[in-house]
Lab assay of single mutants.
Amino acid sequence: IINNLKLIREKKKISQSELAALLEVSRQTINGIEKNKYNPSLQLALKIAYYLNTPLEDIFQW
């Protein structure tokens, strides 16, 4: 999986903590996703895309 979450999140000036709060997950979860240590569920990936107002395929590429 190619993961552009960190790049997109930083472009939008959103911290890991802010995104985690919006998604109701821990900051460690966001960190793990960004470091490719954790693959989000489809539901979480869709929520990330929604809150970042970015197409899912721009954030994650399988």
Results as ranks from 00 to 15, higher is better:
residue 41 S to N: 09
residue 27 R to V: 15
residue 25 V to A: 03
residue 14 I to C: 06
residue 52 L to C: 03
residue 7 L to Y: 12
residue 47 K to N: 06
residue 23 L to S: 06
residue 38 Y to K: 12
residue 19 L to I: 04
residue 31 N to D: 15
residue 17 S to M: 12
residue 23 L to W: 01
residue 52 L to R: 00
residue 37 K to I: 13
residue 61 Q to P: 15
residue 13 K to T: 06
residue 43 Q to T: 12
residue 43 Q to E: 12
residue 18 E to Q: 12
residue 53 N to D: 14
residue 17 S to F: 12
residue 49 A to T: 03
residue 58 D to A: 08
residue 18 E to M: 09
residue 48 I to V: 05
residue 59 I to H: 03
residue 28 Q to T: 12
residue 27 R to M: 13
residue 40 P to L: 09
residue 23 L to I: 11
residue 51 Y to H: 09
residue 15 S to Q: 06
residue 53 N to P: 00
residue 50 Y to M: 12
residue 52 L to T: 04
residue 18 E to L: 07
residue 29 T to Q: 08
residue 17 S to C: 11
residue 37 K to D: 11
residue 26 S to E: 07
residue 57 E to V: 08
residue 56 L to M: 12
residue 4 N to A: 05
residue 60 F to C: 04
residue 44 L to K: 02
residue 18 E to V: 11
residue 28 Q to H: 14
residue 48 I to K: 00
residue 53 N to S: 12
residue 24 E to V: 07
residue 28 Q to L: 11
residue 49 A to N: 01
residue 6 K to D: 03
residue 61 Q to I: 12
residue 31 N to C: 08
residue 38 Y to W: 13
residue 8 I to K: 03
residue 10 E to L: 13
residue 56 L to A: 05
residue 14 I to H: 04
residue 49 A to S: 11
residue 30 I to N: 00
residue 34 E to P: 01
residue 34 E to L: 04
residue 14 I to T: 05
residue 44 L to D: 04
residue 57 E to M: 09
residue 36 N to A: 09
residue 42 L to Q: 06
residue 33 I to A: 02
residue 56 L to E: 02
residue 18 E to H: 12
residue 44 L to T: 05
residue 43 Q to V: 13
residue 41 S to Y: 04
residue 23 L to V: 15
residue 28 Q to I: 12
residue 61 Q to K: 11
residue 26 S to Y: 03
residue 24 E to A: 14
residue 31 N to S: 13
residue 22 L to Y: 15
residue 19 L to W: 03
residue 1 I to Y: 14
residue 54 T to W: 05
residue 39 N to T: 15
residue 10 E to T: 13
residue 20 A to T: 01
residue 8 I to E: 05
residue 37 K to W: 15
residue 16 Q to L: 12
residue 5 L to N: 02
residue 41 S to D: 10
residue 4 N to Y: 09
residue 6 K to W: 04
residue 5 L to S: 02
residue 11 K to I: 11
residue 7 L to S: 15
residue 25 V to Q: 03
residue 14 I to A: 03
residue 9 R to N: 01
residue 19 L to A: 01
residue 2 I to N: 12
residue 38 Y to C: 12
residue 7 L to Q: 14
residue 17 S to I: 11
residue 12 K to H: 08
residue 18 E to I: 06
residue 4 N to K: 09
residue 34 E to C: 03
residue 50 Y to H: 13
residue 1 I to V: 12
residue 10 E to G: 06
residue 19 L to P: 00
residue 7 L to K: 14
residue 48 I to P: 00
residue 20 A to W: 03
residue 6 K to H: 09
residue 28 Q to A: 13
residue 59 I to M: 05
residue 43 Q to N: 11
residue 34 E to T: 02
residue 59 I to E: 01
residue 14 I to K: 05
residue 20 A to V: 03
residue 17 S to Q: 12
residue 32 G to Y: 15
residue 42 L to T: 05
residue 10 E to M: 12
residue 5 L to E: 01
residue 38 Y to L: 12
residue 54 T to C: 08
residue 11 K to D: 09
residue 30 I to E: 03
residue 25 V to Y: 02
residue 15 S to N: 06
residue 46 L to A: 07
residue 62 W to K: 07
residue 19 L to F: 08
residue 49 A to I: 02
residue 21 A to G: 12
residue 17 S to Y: 09
residue 55 P to G: 06
residue 8 I to C: 07
residue 59 I to Y: 02
residue 19 L to R: 00
residue 59 I to K: 00
residue 18 E to G: 09
residue 20 A to Q: 03
residue 3 N to V: 07
residue 58 D to N: 09
residue 54 T to G: 01
residue 56 L to K: 02
residue 25 V to K: 02
residue 3 N to Q: 05
residue 16 Q to V: 12
residue 33 I to V: 06
residue 49 A to H: 03
residue 59 I to W: 02
residue 51 Y to E: 05
residue 39 N to M: 14
residue 31 N to G: 08
residue 59 I to R: 00
residue 3 N to W: 02
residue 45 A to P: 00
residue 17 S to P: 06
residue 56 L to F: 10
residue 34 E to V: 03
residue 32 G to E: 15
residue 8 I to F: 09
residue 41 S to T: 11
residue 14 I to P: 00
residue 28 Q to N: 11
residue 3 N to C: 07
residue 55 P to F: 04
residue 36 N to H: 12
residue 12 K to V: 09
residue 3 N to P: 03
residue 55 P to L: 05
residue 51 Y to C: 09
residue 15 S to C: 04
residue 29 T to E: 11
residue 54 T to E: 08
residue 9 R to F: 04
residue 15 S to R: 07
residue 43 Q to K: 13
residue 42 L to C: 14
residue 20 A to C: 04
residue 2 I to W: 13
residue 12 K to W: 04
residue 44 L to Y: 02
residue 60 F to A: 00
residue 38 Y to H: 13
residue 36 N to F: 10
residue 53 N to W: 04
residue 48 I to C: 04
residue 36 N to R: 09
residue 39 N to S: 15
residue 31 N to I: 14
residue 58 D to F: 09
residue 25 V to D: 02
residue 20 A to H: 03
residue 58 D to P: 00
residue 22 L to C: 11
residue 13 K to E: 10
residue 49 A to P: 01
residue 62 W to V: 12
residue 11 K to G: 13
residue 46 L to E: 08
residue 2 I to P: 09
residue 17 S to G: 13
residue 31 N to M: 14
residue 15 S to M: 04
residue 37 K to N: 11
residue 54 T to Q: 05
residue 6 K to R: 14
residue 22 L to Q: 12
residue 55 P to Y: 04
residue 23 L to M: 07
residue 51 Y to G: 04
residue 3 N to Y: 01
residue 5 L to P: 01
residue 60 F to E: 00
residue 14 I to N: 01
residue 34 E to K: 02
residue 55 P to R: 08
residue 23 L to Q: 01
residue 14 I to L: 12
residue 15 S to W: 03
residue 60 F to K: 00
residue 33 I to Q: 00
residue 35 K to N: 15
residue 27 R to D: 10
residue 20 A to M: 03
residue 27 R to Q: 15
residue 50 Y to P: 00
residue 29 T to K: 08
residue 37 K to P: 03
residue 29 T to P: 02
residue 37 K to G: 07
residue 13 K to V: 06
residue 27 R to T: 15
residue 16 Q to C: 03
residue 35 K to T: 15
residue 13 K to G: 15
residue 32 G to C: 15
residue 62 W to Y: 09
residue 12 K to I: 08
residue 43 Q to L: 14
residue 54 T to D: 02
residue 3 N to H: 04
residue 42 L to P: 07
residue 14 I to M: 15
residue 45 A to L: 05
residue 14 I to G: 01
residue 14 I to R: 04
residue 24 E to F: 10
residue 46 L to Q: 12
residue 36 N to W: 07
residue 62 W to Q: 10
residue 10 E to K: 11
residue 48 I to N: 00
residue 34 E to F: 02
residue 47 K to T: 05
residue 33 I to S: 01
residue 9 R to T: 03
residue 11 K to P: 02
residue 28 Q to V: 12
residue 59 I to C: 02
residue 26 S to K: 08
residue 17 S to D: 14
residue 21 A to F: 10
residue 45 A to R: 07
residue 62 W to G: 11
residue 9 R to M: 07
residue 56 L to Y: 07
residue 49 A to K: 01
residue 7 L to C: 13
residue 55 P to V: 05
residue 41 S to L: 03
residue 30 I to T: 01
residue 53 N to V: 05
residue 62 W to C: 13
residue 5 L to C: 04
residue 28 Q to P: 07
residue 8 I to M: 06
residue 23 L to R: 00
residue 29 T to Y: 15
residue 61 Q to D: 12
residue 5 L to M: 13
residue 5 L to K: 01
residue 42 L to Y: 14
residue 19 L to Q: 00
